[in-house]
Design a binder for these strands. Structure first.
Length: 138
DNA sequence: GCCAACGTTGGC
DNA sequence: GCCAACGTTGGC
């Protein structure tokens, strides 16, 4: 199963905001980048992803689940833009910082490190398992 | 707040 | 189809 990573600025929409939505979850709208959109199009119901705080925090804080596959972004009339819906699953007991990720050579190839500007990105099984472990999940 | 890196736009 | 100009992102 593929894994993903979603970035958001905590000042705009952070982990706590998603948790507050509960099972209703939230549309991951506002993405206006084709690569990021294509990643969302590839997502399947039940896929999981990390929630990462950009600009402030700079750490992986939790795990989200895709509960609606790609559909048109309700915030625009432009049919080119689609998004998935996600809900919070679990908080990482120990958030995994970008600093830590950058110092671990096993994570050196993460998109987060190589292309820091891509806001929705794929994560490999190895990266997923390692970050879960570093984050304190078994 | 700065600015490097990246993606997009549009004139030619 | 090239590439300069511009806008945005996100680490620092």
């Amino acid at each position: 199963m593929p894994y993903w990573l979603f970035k958001s600025e905590p000042d705009v929409f952070g982990w706590d905001d998603l948790v507050a939505k509960g099972d209703a979850g939230e549309e991951w709208d506002g993405v206006r980048n084709y690569q990021a959109r294509n990643n969302m199009r590839a997502m399947k119901l039940g896929d999981r992803g990390f929630f990462y705080h950009s600009r402030k925090g700079l750490e992986v804080v939790g795990i989200v689940e895709v509960y609606a596959e790609a559909h048109q972004d309700s915030k625009t009339d432009d049919v080119h833009w689609e998004c998935v819906d996600v809900k919070a699953v679990e908080k990482l007991p120990n958030p995994v910082s970008l600093d830590l990720i950058k110092t671990d050579e096993r994570l050196a190839d993460m998109v987060l490190v190589k292309n820091s500007r891509l806001s929705v990105q794929p994560v490999t099984d190895e990266e997923w398992n390692l970050i879960c472990a570093l984050g304190g999940l078994s």
